[in-house]
């Protein structure tokens, strides 16, 4: 294993708090792809909430913290296009005029990847053996799609999952209305957007909704649950890692322990 890459997992706030299974799924997928995985304990948040709220000072402070914690690894992998996009596209922007930080920010950006695209584009996985019985539709989370160009990668891997059929919704690339703080700052507009999204999902007849970002997943899962639908909502990593038996879908009832 000496030449297998040393990969740090950037867990992300929402996975840490809401959906640890996604973190374990990421570790499993990375290890199976031949990586040595570490989870630095000093990690917190990538700083995106501050950045998008116009608070550059806190955004920079958090970015510095992330750079510090993660700079020593071969790769940094993030199970989210949104947090991944923050590190990959916005850290260089944050430090563009800072001659010292610019280099380290660019260096970290260059080795940071969203989980699924890391598996396909860097580790060159074309097939992951997994089984999932269901008809799934895939939502393209905005940052992953437009900042990182993630579109085909998850679909390619999902096609290899035994028992799973992919059925596209009409507008998989339209935002679900989460938008970080947007969903609490403009809840009515956000609700309209997620209502349209759920209608689009329901129209496919799929029983499962997959996506690579926890924010969008919480939003869509919460809406479909409020509407009384019983679509199984999961992070794509859970399916690829074959970890759907160990935990119920997002927002679904759990068995008594």
């Amino acid at each position: 294993m000496a030449d297998s890459p040393r990969v740090a997992l950037f867990v992300t706030c929402l996975v840490d708090l809401f959906r640890p299974t996604v973190g374990f799924a990421a570790v499993k997928l990375l290890e199976e792809a031949g990586c040595r995985v570490e989870v630095p304990a000093a990690q917190t948040c990538c700083g995106q909430p501050a950045f998008n709220s116009g608070d550059r000072d806190n955004a920079k402070a958090l970015a510095r913290q992330v750079i510090d914690v993660f700079k020593g690894f071969d790769y940094v992998v993030v199970p989210s296009g949104s947090c991944g996009g923050m590190i990959k596209t916005h850290y260089p922007e944050l430090f563009a005029t800072d001659p010292i930080m610019a280099d380290v920010a660019n260096a970290l950006a260059a080795k940071t990847f969203e989980l699924v695209s890391f598996l396909t584009d860097v580790m060159k996985c074309d097939h992951i053996a997994a089984r999932y019985d269901g008809v799934a539709t895939y939502h393209d989370a905005c940052s992953g799609l437009r900042e990182l160009g993630i579109k085909d990668q998850p679909r390619r891997l999902l096609k290899g999952v035994e028992g799973l059929t992919l059925k596209e919704m009409a507008t998989p690339e339209v935002c679900c209305g989460f938008g970080g703080t947007f969903c609490v700052k403009y809840p009515e507009i956000s609700d309209k957007m997620v209502s349209d999204k759920v209608a689009d999902i329901v129209a496919t007849g799929a029983d499962t909704l997959l996506c690579g970002d926890m924010g969008c997943l919480l939003n869509m899962a919460g809406k479909q649950s409020r509407l009384g639908k019983s679509i199984r909502v999961r992070h794509v990593a859970e399916v690829l890692a074959g970890m759907t038996d160990t935990t119920p879908p997002i927002a679904a009832p759990r068995e008594k322990r």
């Binding site: 809401f18 959906r19 640890p20 304990a41 809840p187 809406k223 649950s225 409020r226 935990t247």
Partner: peptide, 18 residues
């Protein structure tokens, strides 16, 4: 409340990942 007025908030699975 802005969220939960119109949609459910999924509950965390259990203990945090970290």
């Amino acid at each position: 409340a802005g969220w939960t007025d119109t949609r459910d908030m999924p509950a965390p699975e259990g203990r945090s990942f970290m």
